[in-house]
Amino acid sequence: MKPALAQPVAALPRGEGLAYEPKFDGHRILLFKIDGSAVLQARSGRIVTTAFPDLAEAALALPDGTVVDGEAVVWTGGRTDFAAVQRRAAATAARARLLARRLPASYAAFDLLWERGEDLRPAPYERRRGRLSALLAPLGPPLQPVPMTTDPRLAETWFETLPEAGIEGLVVKHLAGPYRSGARDWRKLRHTELRDAAVTGFTGPPGRPAALVLVLPDDDTPVVSGPLPPALRARAGQLLSGRTAEHPEGAPRTARAIGLGEVPYRAVEPGLLAEVMRGTTRHTVVTVHRLRDDLINQV
């Protein structure tokens, strides 16, 4: 199932019939409970159930025929930790349970698509939100609905204060709007277009990578950055030394590069972040501004 998407905006939308939610930078996951089993699907369609055994176990408390949309997040030091959640998402089945104990995940749910076999996607968001809250309230953590308000003044307060907790913006939805898979009906407002992205690989020589392969918040499909400037190439070579990871099946990995299509790359162990800027056009290059070696996850 394709998730609904959001279009970036430069100012807070206002008007009648709008709802505002904090924007969590985690790992977008559709959570299915079907025939007594839980299945977790990433935005790309990849099944990530084994990577998040703690969330899969919690999802067993949901009624059969239920599908929830939300973000898997990891909290460290009172802030959301994007590097940590990407480490969780990339874990092998053998390592996933260890990481689940060290870096427990929470599920920030923001929409209910099916409940007990009933398709709620055509229903207005306001109704879906009410049923989501009623469904999750008896369960508690780690499955919890994100906060929501219809008051733009409170939304502004969230926008100004929540970045201290690692929450970098807002998502705005129409109370009367249906859930349209793949459509950009929602709006998202961020403080800056500079984002932290997870480094998952590189192209070029190991000592001086030509470009980085990145996973951006909300999208687990790897993309190739624009060419690195000379200083960043040298620093990337230092930080990525000894972090290369072999594909379990020996096949080369590929990622999408603007203007080139799919290109092969060398994978690296998760844990390093890069601060990047991505434009808002359909075909846009991701530019690396700096490497977040201050946030390397050592777990």
Rank of each mutant, 00 (worst) to 15 (best):
E16C: 09
V299L: 14
P142M: 06
L55M: 07
P63Y: 02
V263L: 08
L120S: 06
E249Y: 09
A176T: 13
S37Q: 15
G17K: 11
R127G: 11
L216N: 09
E115L: 14
P63L: 04
A274L: 09
E156A: 15
P163F: 07
D196Q: 07
L212C: 03
V299T: 14
A38N: 01
V171K: 01
D294E: 11
V199C: 02
S225G: 07
A83M: 08
L143E: 02
T281D: 15
E246L: 12
T149A: 08
A255T: 10
D219N: 15
A198D: 04
H289T: 09
V268D: 02
K173P: 02
A89Q: 03
A210S: 13
V223Q: 05
G271F: 00
R87S: 08
P13V: 06
L291P: 03
R290A: 10
D64C: 10
L120D: 02
L113S: 02
A234V: 14
F24L: 13
T254P: 01
L260F: 13
P147L: 14
F82G: 00
L260C: 09
A108H: 05
P141M: 13
T49P: 03
T287P: 05
T287H: 14
L112H: 04
R79Y: 05
R256V: 09
R102D: 13
L239F: 06
F110V: 08
P53A: 04
M1D: 12
I258F: 08
W75M: 08
L99R: 05
A91Q: 04
L239G: 03
E275Y: 02
I296W: 04
P141Y: 10
G26K: 07
Y125P: 00
K173W: 04
L99P: 03
A109I: 07
T254W: 02
L162Y: 04
L154R: 13
S181T: 11
R79G: 01
A96N: 06
H283R: 14
G15S: 11
V74N: 00
Y265A: 00
A251W: 12
V9W: 07
A38Q: 07
A56D: 01
G15T: 12
P206M: 09
F110G: 03
L31Y: 00
R187G: 05
L40Y: 04
D294H: 05
E164I: 10
G207Q: 15
E118P: 06
D64L: 13
G271C: 07
A165Q: 15
G140N: 11
P217A: 11
T203F: 01
G279Q: 08
G237P: 00
G78C: 08
A11Y: 05
H283N: 14
T161W: 12
A42S: 14
R43F: 06
